[in-house]
């Protein structure tokens, strides 16, 4: 059972994630978009969307720090267990509150505003459901267990297992002892990852960073530029 949950599920999800993205990129450039609805409603979006996105950036940063960076590394640079705990719980709670508040506003917008409700597809609904479950379970870990509860050092188990999955040396037994909330958050996250390529989330990979150094006005030729633009007959090879 533990092999299914902590080895098979992750690899199936990751495979769907990779293959799904390749397939979607190749067949559905047209659907590769944020599917913005700001023109339909902007008052709730103005608050909800920045809260959600900035909160998610912080949460992703926290996950990189907690999952990908081994405990021994942070200890090597002098970060004690206690210091890590304080920082991760504080920053995690702040980020979590931002994400929950932002997502709450964005979901409320989808329910309350008829215009946006009409623009919501079935895939959107499935995505928002899974996303809400993942986020609430993650909040439960940070707030209920690590802030008010006894605390759980996931860096000794979950993180090691996660790096094992990524390096193709999975150790499922590391997860079997983790608290149920951690197990559920992890499983829900795999579902979320498997859905990713089939949802509007693909817009994440199009974050327009290259805009910062691109020339302002983009010119394109209808035809490939001829090899020797100076030659008067240069347009002819375009028929190739």
């Amino acid at each position: 059972m533990s092999v299914v949950l902590w080895v098979v599920v992750p690899y199936v999800a990751l495979t769907v994630f990779v293959v799904g993205h390749v397939w979607r990129w190749r067949t559905d450039q047209f659907g590769w978009t944020t599917r913005t609805t700001q023109v339909l409603e902007s008052r709730l979006l103005r608050l909800g969307s920045p809260l959600f996105h900035l909160g998610v950036f912080a949460a992703i940063g926290g996950h990189v720090l907690g999952l990908l960076i081994p405990k021994s590394w942070t200890e090597a640079v002098g970060v004690s267990d206690h210091l890590y705990h304080v920082v991760s719980v504080t920053a995690g709670t702040v980020a979590g509150v931002m994400v929950v508040a932002g997502l709450g506003l964005l979901l409320a917008r989808r329910f309350v505003t008829g215009r946006v409700r009409r623009a919501t597809t079935r895939m959107d609904k499935a995505l928002f459901t899974v996303m809400a479950v993942v986020i609430l379970l993650g909040m439960a870990e940070t707030v209920a267990i690590n802030l008010f509860g006894g605390g759980y050092d996931y860096r000794a188990t979950v993180s090691v297992w996660f790096r094992g999955v990524l390096t193709f040396r999975p150790e499922p037994e590391l997860m079997t002892g983790a608290p149920l909330v951690f197990q559920l958050h992890t499983l829900a996250a795999w579902v979320f990852i498997a859905m990713w390529p089939f949802t509007r989330l693909v817009h994440v990979w199009s974050a327009p960073v290259a805009y910062l150094w691109r020339p302002y006005v983009v010119y394109r030729r209808r035809t490939a530029r001829p090899a020797a633009p100076a030659a008067p007959a240069a347009r002819e090879p375009a028929g190739r």
Binding site: R214, V218, R220, R221, R222, T223
Partner: peptide, 10 residues
């Protein structure tokens, strides 16, 4: 931001 808009040279 995406460079999706363009002016045709021709």
């Amino acid at each position: 931001p995406s460079g999706a808009m363009y002016k045709r040279e021709e």
